[in-house]
Design a protein around this nucleic acid. Structure first.
Lengths: 297, 297
DNA sequence: CTGCCGTGACACCCCAAAGGTATCGAACAA
DNA sequence: TTGTTCGATACCTTTGGGGTGTCACGGCAG
């Protein structure tokens, strides 16, 4: 059974004339007659009343006509929707990102993608780097925005932005009043770092700065992610070392200050599975690439 | 585009394995691979993710899968319903009958048809003979139950029943008390006859009896149909001559009585267009034939 | 009444496309 | 490395859809 046969049937049912229907379908009349005959044989039912010179639909024909219309409409919809999703203009994209990315360029990137592909449904979630890695591997997400980049041969990587590190201090800290802060002077402070697991992680990047500056922190407080760390800072537990961009969002109890000394900086990187060539993903990577080029050379 | 291709696609989408899907479809694997490739080309979209050894549906594939399921279900429904209507087991049958038929065997006939074909929707209407003829010609109805039979080469006829004529008298008539009624004694009565148009009609059958009995009615009241005539009788306007079967339904103000004298009787006949071979019609004619044979030889 | 016209069905031919077999090539396991 | 699994490709055969020519039947005009 072919969709064509239904189209032929509909044409005859509407024209009630084999010759005209054939002309409309741009085929000759004999094959059309044959197709209709085959259809009637297939269903085992007479669809047209051929008595006299006038052709009429039988009741069965009317029933089939209605179904045929709906089937062909549905087929058309199937084509259109499938094409749209296949071209990346519709569908769903699951993006996860590290908590510290929600303040800087990532919202702008997502806004940019949404303006280009408004019909793609976005599923966003904020998790830590390790969870990003796991979720991307297990295909629970399509895009991971991580800091630092995830090292995995299976991943496609696109640098989104680099930034300096700055200090996040409790506002009642005596350090907050100092005009210039040297990292080497922080040896006796409590460092609030993240994530706790798995190691090595961003926490070790910060510990690396300490080592380079010639000390090990007096006290360490390890949390699971950026959000928890900054909360601890805000209640005065200690200081943290964070990406510059988070300072655009002011937060009660927290003061952001640059420091002098070793500053390896940090980069936000967009990842996807190499084997995930879904158009939604490829388009997002494309938008990321253009976005990164535009915003910092 | 072929329904087969959608079926193939669904099989692969469910099995996620070309070999198994091909086995299930009872074809070899290469043609299946080719059909899927053709489908992907046709839609212009990748439907499966063939990376590594594991096959997965793409988002577009999932969209198409849902549509394909519904299209195939709909096709199946189209087949079933069309078959049912084509076999006469479903659909619609438009039956019209003369008013005087609604009391006798016709209700039994219709009951019998309904018990055999409960899913056929019946559209019933009571009209006069002339209207029956017109409606059957113009295909507004499928079946006409007329009295007397309609003379037309285009019609198929099936005798349903013959019956005697009897008198319908107002209950306050002095005739109602007489033990035996002779038609010849009715010369001075008012005859309520029907239908008024077109002539000749059943009214002329009754006038024929009068003539045969040697008189012309003293007064004539012509109405359009049986229902109106019997109403006039019930309010005492005059008497009428009606088929015996209407007496099974008693009616206030009306007394039914047999008479002696010329009694041509009357027949109820089922008609349909000769060129209307719709199964619903043929089945009804069949039921009628069996019914007539059973009920009177 | 006859012959023409309109219309659908039938006969025959050709080619596109679907199915089959054999085989290849990549990926994974032993 | 080799063997195995699995989808893709190559090539052949067959099915079936489309085209042309023609017939058969009913309607209509001359």
């Amino acid at each position: 059974m072919d969709f064509r046969r239904l189209r032929y049937f509909l044409a005859v049912a509407e024209e009630l004339h084999f010759g005209r229907a054939a002309t409309r379908l741009e085929i000759a009349q004999p094959p059309l007659s044959r197709q209709i005959a085959t259809l009637e044989k297939e269903v085992g039912v007479q669809l047209f009343d051929r008595s006299r010179s006038q052709i009429r639909l039988t009741q069965a024909g009317m029933v089939l006509q209605e179904h045929a219309r709906q089937i062909l409409e549905r087929l058309d919809a199937a084509y259109r929707e499938t094409k749209a999703v296949g071209a990346g203009g519709a569908g769903r994209l699951r993006i996860a990102f590290v908590g510290s990315a929600s303040h800087g360029v990532l919202p702008l990137l997502i806004k940019s993608y949404r303006s280009s592909y408004p019909d793609v449904e976005l599923a966003l979630s904020a998790v830590n780097n390790a969870e990003l890695h796991r979720a991307l591997i297990s295909r629970e997400i399509d895009i991971a925005v991580a800091r630092p980049e995830l090292r995995d041969d299976e991943f496609r990587r696109e640098l989104l932005c680099r930034e300096k590190l700055i200090l996040a201090l409790p506002d009642n800290s005596r350090l907050a009043t100092q005009s210039e802060l040297r990292f080497a002077d922080l040896a006796n402070e409590t460092f609030v770092l993240y994530p706790r697991r798995p190691r090595p992680s961003y926490a070790d990047v910060v510990l690396g700065i300490c080592e380079k500056e010639g000390f090990a922190p007096a006290r360490l407080e390890l949390t699971q992610d950026f959000q928890s760390a900054i909360s601890l800072v805000s209640v005065g537990v200690g200081l943290s070392v964070v990406p510059e961009s988070v300072s655009v969002t002011q937060r009660p109890g927290v003061i952001y200050r640059p420091y002098s000394g070793h500053n390896p900086g940090t980069a936000l990187t967009v990842h996807s599975r190499l084997d995930n060539r879904a158009p939604q993903v490829m388009n997002f990577i494309d938008v990321t690439r253009r976005f990164a080029r535009k915003s910092h050379g």
